[in-house]
Every structure is written in structure tokens, then in C-alpha cells.
Simulated scan of single mutants.
Amino acid sequence: MADDKSKRDSRDRDRVSGDQEYEVGYFASKFQLTIPEVRELIRKYGNDRETLEREAKALGSR
């Protein structure tokens, strides 16, 4: 089901939806990762944005 972009609040901002291609693509480009790498991070750590950003930075520095 697609996001309803007319409903804007902060509840969704702290999560990364692995089902939404544009969210995965944005996250991948932000941290210079591939889409499979982002999907693996989501699978491994869940969809909490703060946790994913921390792990993506750690992955990028290796």
C-alpha cells in the first residue's frame, strides 16, 4: 500500500520502510550503499532510522 503523502506528521520519520522503493533508494544514496546492502541492514537491525544510520555509517567506514 502506498504512503498517503497528504498525511504529514512525525510518526513515520523515525522509520525506514523496506517496502517503499524511494525510501530504500534515498537511504542507499545518502550513505553510498547498494539497495541490497540497505535491505540487509533493515532485515538485520529493523527499520529504526537512528539505528540504521549508525550501522550504515559503520558499514561505510569499513
Rank of each mutant, 00 (worst) to 15 (best):
residue 1 M to E: 08
residue 1 M to P: 05
residue 3 D to R: 15
residue 3 D to I: 15
residue 3 D to M: 11
residue 4 D to H: 11
residue 4 D to M: 10
residue 5 K to I: 09
residue 5 K to Q: 11
residue 5 K to T: 14
residue 6 S to F: 12
residue 7 K to L: 15
residue 7 K to S: 11
residue 8 R to T: 13
residue 8 R to E: 15
residue 9 D to L: 12
residue 9 D to Y: 10
residue 10 S to D: 13
residue 10 S to I: 15
residue 11 R to F: 14
residue 12 D to N: 08
residue 14 D to N: 13
residue 15 R to V: 11
residue 17 S to M: 09
residue 17 S to Q: 12
residue 17 S to C: 08
residue 18 G to C: 06
residue 18 G to H: 04
residue 19 D to R: 14
residue 19 D to E: 10
residue 20 Q to L: 10
residue 20 Q to P: 00
residue 20 Q to S: 14
residue 20 Q to F: 10
residue 21 E to Y: 05
residue 21 E to R: 06
residue 21 E to S: 03
residue 21 E to D: 14
residue 21 E to A: 09
residue 22 Y to I: 05
residue 22 Y to K: 05
residue 23 E to C: 00
residue 23 E to Q: 11
residue 26 Y to K: 13
residue 27 F to S: 04
residue 27 F to N: 01
residue 27 F to I: 02
residue 27 F to G: 00
residue 28 A to M: 02
residue 28 A to Q: 05
residue 28 A to I: 04
residue 29 S to E: 14
residue 29 S to I: 09
residue 29 S to Q: 14
residue 31 F to M: 02
residue 31 F to W: 11
residue 31 F to A: 01
residue 33 L to D: 09
residue 34 T to M: 06
residue 34 T to Q: 04
residue 35 I to L: 09
residue 36 P to V: 02
residue 36 P to S: 00
residue 36 P to C: 09
residue 36 P to E: 05
residue 36 P to N: 06
residue 37 E to Q: 15
residue 37 E to G: 02
residue 38 V to P: 00
residue 39 R to M: 08
residue 39 R to A: 00
residue 40 E to H: 12
residue 40 E to Q: 13
residue 41 L to M: 07
residue 42 I to P: 01
residue 42 I to K: 02
residue 43 R to V: 03
residue 44 K to C: 09
residue 45 Y to D: 02
residue 45 Y to P: 04
residue 46 G to T: 08
residue 47 N to Y: 06
residue 47 N to L: 07
residue 49 R to K: 13
residue 49 R to L: 07
residue 50 E to K: 04
residue 51 T to G: 02
residue 51 T to R: 13
residue 51 T to I: 15
residue 51 T to Q: 09
residue 52 L to A: 05
residue 52 L to V: 04
residue 53 E to T: 03
residue 54 R to M: 12
residue 54 R to E: 04
residue 56 A to C: 01
residue 57 K to F: 02
residue 58 A to I: 07
residue 58 A to C: 07
residue 58 A to R: 10
residue 59 L to R: 01
residue 60 G to W: 10
residue 60 G to R: 12
